[in-house]
């Protein structure tokens, strides 16, 4: 791959890159996170061979849980072949030599940035999130000393005031991603910058969810079957984004769609953000309204070519 990756081939580094001492430290933090759902456990995040903010937290968590028999899926923005997903998957292929996949159902460990797969996850899967700013209160109160106190006292008044001001001003809550949730009726938590469309998926999810923030040095977790409630008000209940059209390529409804601009004359289409989901549906013969459109077909074809491995 690149120069750094070539070094791994020389056998200089341990399985999954991290040394055992570091893995133990991360593993202990993960256990604490599981025992205190939604609480951000401080951990001595290491410098990784990719920049802070590019998934170092997720990578460290994945490296600490990954075993030689695991099958890893790596997604970014819902897709397996966006640049950083390719780069991070390559990192684990080189350093751990584990099997990787694009198929959600085949993976035992899924590392993600900004999306949760459309397919329902199972008890045998672990979902690892890359988190930029783990503190849901950070943009309301920049000081760690203060936000830590608020969590300790379960004092989330500030967050409710902010959401209420949104309603007063806009008639609805103007938060569309990284939408705060309350875990197990105790901790307010940032579900990472996934669109709020994905929030219902993390409630009572069968899979274990692990969240890693490398630069901010925090790990948190949601065990399987845990109550996760998106913050709202009785008269303004939480609701997710709705798309008025199905996926232009596979016809899927009730999935998160990305907008693709086809030309400079206002031509656009909406397609599944989860590329594996879309491909699987099309392979099963589902088609969307634009599947036959030449401009759309060109993009699809290009994609097919690039994902062929």
């Amino acid at each position: 791959m690149n120069d750094t990756a070539q070094i791994y081939d020389q056998g200089e580094y341990n399985f999954a890159y991290l040394d055992e001492q570091t893995k133990r430290m991360i593993r202990r933090a993960i256990l604490k996170g599981i025992a205190i759902p939604g609480y951000q456990v401080p951990f001595a995040s290491r410098e990784m061979p990719m920049p802070y903010g590019w998934g170092t937290g997720g990578v460290q968590v994945t490296a600490a849980v990954l075993g030689k028999d695991d099958c890893l899926k790596m997604i970014d923005q819902g897709s397996d072949d966006t640049t950083n997903a390719v780069s991070l998957r390559g990192f684990f292929e080189k350093t751990a030599g584990v099997r990787t996949t694009y198929e959600t159902s085949e993976a035992t460990v899924i590392q993600t940035r900004h999306r949760i797969p459309e397919k329902t996850l199972t008890e045998d899967q672990i979902l690892v999130f890359q988190v930029p700013i783990p503190e849901p209160l950070r943009f309301l109160e920049p000081r760690e000393t203060e936000t830590r106190k608020m969590h300790a006292l379960e004092d989330y008044g500030l967050m409710h005031v902010k959401l209420y001001e949104d309603i007063a001003k806009n008639g609805h809550i103007a938060t569309t991603y990284a939408y705060p949730v309350k875990v197990n009726d105790r901790y307010v938590m940032d579900p990472s910058p996934t669109p709020k469309f994905d929030n219902p998926k993390i409630d009572e999810m069968a899979a274990l969810q692990l969240y890693g923030a490398g630069r901010e040095k925090r790990i948190y977790a949601i065990p399987p079957y845990t109550k996760v409630k998106s913050l709202d008000f009785e008269d303004y209940p939480f609701e997710v984004q709705k798309f008025d059209k199905p996926c232009a390529l596979c016809g899927a409804e009730n999935v998160y769609l990305d907008e693709v601009i086809l030309d400079d004359r206002g031509g656009r289409m909406f397609v599944c953000s989860d590329s594996d989901h879309c491909e699987e549906r099309r392979a099963q013969g589902h088609t969307g309204p634009m599947a036959a459109n030449p401009a759309a077909a060109q993009i699809t074809e290009k994609n097919q070519r690039e994902t062929t491995r």
């Binding site: 055992e20 893995k23 593993r27 993960i30 256990l31 599981i34 025992a35 030689k68 274990l208 399987p224």
Partner: peptide, 19 residues
């Protein structure tokens, strides 16, 4: 096997802590 046995034990402990 210090690396993989420790990993397997951890996954067992993580699994029971999560369930």
């Amino acid at each position: 096997d210090p690396v993989h046995d420790a990993q397997a034990c951890f996954r067992a402990i993580m699994s029971v802590m999560a369930r």
